[in-house]
Design a protein around this nucleic acid. Structure first.
Lengths: 155, 155
DNA sequence: CTCTATTAGTTTCATATGTAACTAATTGAC
DNA sequence: GTCAATTAGTTACATATGAAACTAATAGAG
């Protein structure tokens, strides 16, 4: 048991929610700068491009589920990407409410440029961990994610 | 090496920055709800209370360093807490720009109520991990934090 | 069919947040 | 001492974000 709990004292620097938040913000900020500087994209726009590139024809709602974005954020990111000429929207023939989203050729180009850069950034981030440690981190995060799922709030 | 890298394909669900962001947001949201529902505090206000409770007389600037908050966020959180009657500000005698912050008796009461609740939430969050896994997670996060430090951007 | 409930997506509005400009106090060079 | 440069903290402004209201289309009960 950690000192923190033993002493019944809360040290922010040892408090997991705080540590997660700081680490995530640091990483996200770095990545956001990268996408913005190199391609003029926000993180949300990039997420939308990433899943659309991986799953052409996906709808905005499904993007939201795959990216943990709410529908307003998806709507705005999609609008921005269409404006930039990277995304194209068709209306589903079977359901007039649904959109089907596709990367334009320009969007494909950007997509193919970003993927290796993003993977390289991830690689550098994880470089200090051995591959066993990387696998272990992944496993532990998955456990935590199950524990913290919003459907089953612990607090 | 993971499939993701091997295939040179980016699957958002396996991409560490994305996973960190989603996990952190889920946890933060749960915690924020807890603080707000039970005590009417924002996460930032609670962070300020936490370090002030731990280090009475601390200045706003030092709070910023200890909580990874920028000075504007600290200023706003402090203003809110003073408004709520949980925090008290004195001007340093040796340096008229510096403030010295203290919990009021009401603030102390809240502080003492929150600490065990927050620790319990953390305990529940980590419950699915063995204590070895918890220690390992902590160690791996620390390594990552070093790797991602903003002073030494990798991208 | 037809009418109500639901769903996909957008817009509106109120609030949160970060950057930059600002004020007040202090420090340090001279 | 005096004045430029720095530091602590606040304010102002522009942008980001999320909740709720809204529009358009579909589904489902009868």
């Amino acid at each position: 048991m950690s000192d923190e709990v033993k002493k019944n004292r809360l040290r922010l620097r040892e408090f997991l929610p705080y540590r997660l938040s700081v680490l995530s913000n640091t990483v996200s900020r770095g990545i956001a700068n990268l996408y913005d500087r190199e391609f003029g994209l926000t993180i949300w726009q990039w997420r939308v491009m990433a899943v659309t590139g991986d799953t052409p024809g996906i709808s905005a709602t499904d993007i939201g589920q795959r990216t943990a974005m709410d529908k307003v954020a998806v709507s705005r990111a999609v609008a921005g990407l269409i404006e930039l000429g990277y995304l194209e929207r068709k209306t589903s023939e079977s359901d007039g409410r649904r959109s089907q989203l596709f990367l334009t050729p320009a969007g494909q180009d950007i997509y193919e440029m970003i993927v290796p850069i993003a993977l390289e950034a991830e690689r550098k981030l994880m470089a200090p961990l051995t591959s066993e440690e990387q696998a272990e981190l992944s496993r532990l995060m998955q456990k935590l994610a199950g524990s913290a799922s919003p459907e089953r709030p612990l607090w």
